[in-house]
Design a binder for these strands. Structure first.
Lengths: 355, 355
DNA sequence: CCTGTTCGATAAATCGATTTATCACAAGGG
DNA sequence: CCCTTGTGATAAATCGATTTATCGAACAGG
C-alpha cells in the first residue's frame, strides 16, 4: 500500500489535481462548496497526506528548522533548551533537525552543509554554557545563537542574564540580614562567572556592604571544588567568616553542604547558601532543599525558535537578548546567626544527632 | 546570492545536467576523466550542493530519520540515548528529526503524520523508562522501539537487561562477603523493578543465601523515598539489619547516604550500597562515590538507529534486544562489618566528627 | 560506400506537489 | 445575434534533482 498521491485523490473525486490542491490548502478561489466536500471526502477515503518533500521543492519552504548544538547529550540542561525550541517549532508547524556536533568543528561544518542542503527554513546554533563563540563559517544569515553570543556580532542571540541573576542571589541573602557574604566563584566559565560577580558587587554596593576580597574564592565547578573553596573560607579567623555563601552553581553548593554537614553546621541556621542553575535532581533534593537561581533554558530555547521562525518580531537584527533568571526559594537561606549564640547552637546540633 | 543549482554547474562546465549528476554521484558511466574534472571544478567554483529536497522527491529516499520520544527533555538520561542515535545516524549519512511529544498522544499522532509526510527513511519510538507500551496507530512497519517494548509485538525493540543488571549489583555485594542484603525497591517502575528483583533473587539463590522478606522494602524513586525505606530497615532488630543495600536507583541511594550519614554510619565501613542508573552528577559525586549499575543509554540509542537504518542486520523482525548494563565500581562497597566491632566503630566515627 | 560498434554525452521523462494562465459555459446587455 | 462578464474548474509550467533512452561522431570491417 503505497502512499496516496494528490492525483489519486483527484481521480477518486473526479476532479483535477489543481482543484484538490486548491481545496486542501484552502486557497481563495472559486471552487463550489459541493466540490470542496467531494474532494475532502475523497482525500479522507484514500488517506491522503501531501508529501512535504514535493511541497518543499515547489514552494522552497520546508517547514523544518536545524538545531546545531555542541553537546546536547552530556548535560542535563540541554533537554530543557531542546524542549523549549521544539515546542515552539511544533506550535508553528515546523519540524526540527537536531545535530549534536560534540564540539567537533569538522562535524559542525558538515552539519551546516547538510542542513543547508535540506533547505531548512531557519537555523539555531546552541551551546551548553553561556559563552562567546566564533561564528562558524557557512552559517546562513538569520541564524540565532542560543546560550552563546557570536564573537563578532551579526546574529541575534539569547543568553541568561547572569548579572541580574547574581544580583538576585545576593539580594536574597542581604534581605535575610547577611552582611558577610562570600562568593564561591570559578575559572571554568569566564563569561558567566564574571557577570555573576558583577551582580554580587552591585548588590553589596547597593546595600552599603564593604567588599572583602577574602570572601571571594575560586574552585572547580564540582562538588569537590565547592568543598575545597569553602574550606578555604573556614581558614579565616572566626569573626571574619561568612554567614552566607553565594555559589557559582548548585554542584559547588553541594560541596559546601557536604563539608558543612561534616562540621556539624546546620543549614540555614549556621550558614545560608544560594546556588545557581536550579539543577534538576540536585538542588531540590538537598537537605535542606537549596535556594538557587534558575537558568531559563526552556524559555531561551523557545525564544530562539520563535525569533528564528520570525514569529516573534525582534527589531534588532544583531542584538543579544538577556533572559531573566528567576529565584527559586527553598530552605537554605535564613537569618545570620547571632554571634554569641553560635557555640551553644552548634553543640546542640551535635547532641541531637547522637539520638 | 541564491543557492547554485545543478543547471548552474552544467552551464559553468559547458555540459548537460545529466553529466553533472552522473559525475557528482560517481555513477558508473562513460564520462571522460577530463570532463569529470571540469564538472567537479565548476561545482566547486559555484559552491554547488545538491538539494536534498529535490533528490528526495526523485529518489524517494530522504536520508532522514524520525525520533519520537515521550520526554526527551525532562530526564538527564535522554541525552545519551539521543547522542547514540544521532551519532549512528550521522555516520550513515542521515539527519534526525526529533519530536518530543511530552507523552501527549494527540501530539504523538501528529508527529507520526508529520514524519510520514516528510518521508523519513526510518522511525524510532523512544521512551524514557523501560516500559511496555501500546504501539501507536499509524506507526510504519520497521519502526524500532527504544527503551520500551510494544505491547503486542510486531516491532523490534531494545531495552536494558535489568534482570542481569540487578544480578550484577547483588553479585558485587555477595562477592564482598555480604549475606544480609536488602533491596530497596519501588512501585513507580513495574517492569524494571520486577526484573531487578528477579536478578536479586537469582544471585541470592546462586550464593545459597536465604531470602528474608523483611529485607525487601519499597519507596518512591526519590532521595526522600530511599531514605524512608532505609529507615524502615533500621526498625529491624539490630542483628537482623542488612549490612548491604541494593537500591532501585541512584536517587534512592542518595537518600540512604543522607540518613546513614546523619546516623554516623560510615559508607562502606558500616554499610555497603549499590545503586542503579549511574546518573551523572549524582552517582560519582557522592561521598564516597557510589558503586552502581549503568544504564546503557548511548548504546541503546545507537543500536536502535543502526537497526532502523538497516545497517545492523537483526535476523528477527519482532525481537527484543537486551542491552547489557555494566557495573560501575566506585567506593560504596566494602566487606561487611564484624558484628562485635560495630559499636566501637560507630562511636569512633562520631568522635571524629566532633573535631 | 555502407553498416555496425563503441564512446561520450545528452534530451526528456519523472518524482508530487503548487501556481499561473487559460478555458468552457452560462447569463446578461445592447 | 454578438459581445461582455462572471463562474467553476483545469492544463501546463515549475521546483531541482535522477535516470532512462537516445543521439551523433568516430572508427573498423566487409
Amino acid at each position: 500500500m503505497a502512499r496516496a498521491r494528490i492525483s489519486d485523490v483527484a481521480a477518486a473525486a473526479g476532479v483535477s489535481v489543481t482543484t484538490v490542491s486548491l481545496v486542501m490548502n484552502d486557497v481563495e478561489s472559486r471552487i463550489s462548496e459541493e466540490t470542496r466536500r467531494r474532494v475532502r471526502a475523497a482525500a479522507q477515503a484514500v488517506g491522503y497526506a501531501p508529501s512535504s518533500v514535493a511541497r518543499g521543492l515547489r514552494t522552497q519552504q520546508t517547514r523544518t528548522v536545524g538545531l546545531i548544538s555542541d553537546q546536547i547529550a552530556t548535560t542535563p540542561f540541554a533537554g530543557d533548551m531542546l524542549a523549549g525550541a521544539q515546542d515552539a517549532a511544533r506550535e508553528n508547524g515546523h519540524l526540527v533537525f537536531l545535530i549534536d556536533t560534540g564540539g567537533d568543528s569538522a562535524i559542525e561544518a558538515d552539519a551546516i552543509r547538510a542542513l543547508t542542503a535540506q533547505q531548512v527554513d531557519a537555523l539555531i546554533y546552541a551551546c551548553m554554557w553561556h559563552q562567546v563563540v566564533p561564528a562558524p563559517t557557512g552559517l546562513p544569515a538569520g541564524a540565532v545563537f542560543l546560550d552563546c553570543r557570536p564573537e563578532n556580532g551579526g546574529f541575534r542571540s539569547v543568553v541568561p542574564d547572569d548579572r541580574a541573576g547574581g544580583a538576585a542571589a545576593v539580594r536574597e541573602l542581604v534581605a535575610a540580614g547577611h552582611r558577610r557574604i562570600a562568593y564561591i566563584d570559578t575559572d571554568d566559565n569566564p563569561i558567566a562567572s564574571t557577570l555573576r560577580h558583577e551582580g554580587y558587587l552591585e548588590v553589596l554596593a547597593e546595600a552599603g556592604i564593604p567588599v572583602d576580597p577574602a570572601l571571594h574564592v575560586h574552585g572547580e565547578t564540582t562538588a569537590r571544588g565547592g568543598r575545597a573553596a569553602f574550606e578555604r573560607l573556614l581558614d579565616l579567623p572566626e569573626d571574619q567568616r561568612p554567614t552566607a555563601i553565594f555559589c557559582f552553581n548548585d554542584r559547588m553548593a553541594v560541596g559546601v553542604y557536604i563539608a558543612a554537614h561534616r562540621l556539624g553546621l546546620d543549614i540555614p541556621r549556621d550558614l545560608s547558601i544560594v546556588g545557581y542553575d536550579d539543577q534538576q535532581l540536585i538542588a531540590a533534593e538537598q537537605d535542606p532543599p537549596l535556594t538557587t537561581i534558575a537558568l531559563p533554558h526552556y524559555d531561551m530555547g523557545r525564544w530562539a525558535m520563535e525569533v528564528a521562525l520570525g514569529v516573534r518580531a525582534e527589531g534588532d537584527e544583531d542584538a543579544t537578548h538577556l533572559m531573566k533568571c528567576p529565584v527559586v526559594r527553598r530552605d537554605s537561606v535564613g537569618p545570620p546567626p547571632a554571634q554569641v549564640a553560635k557555640p551553644n547552637r552548634r553543640r546542640a546540633s551535635l547532641t541531637e544527632r547522637l539520638l
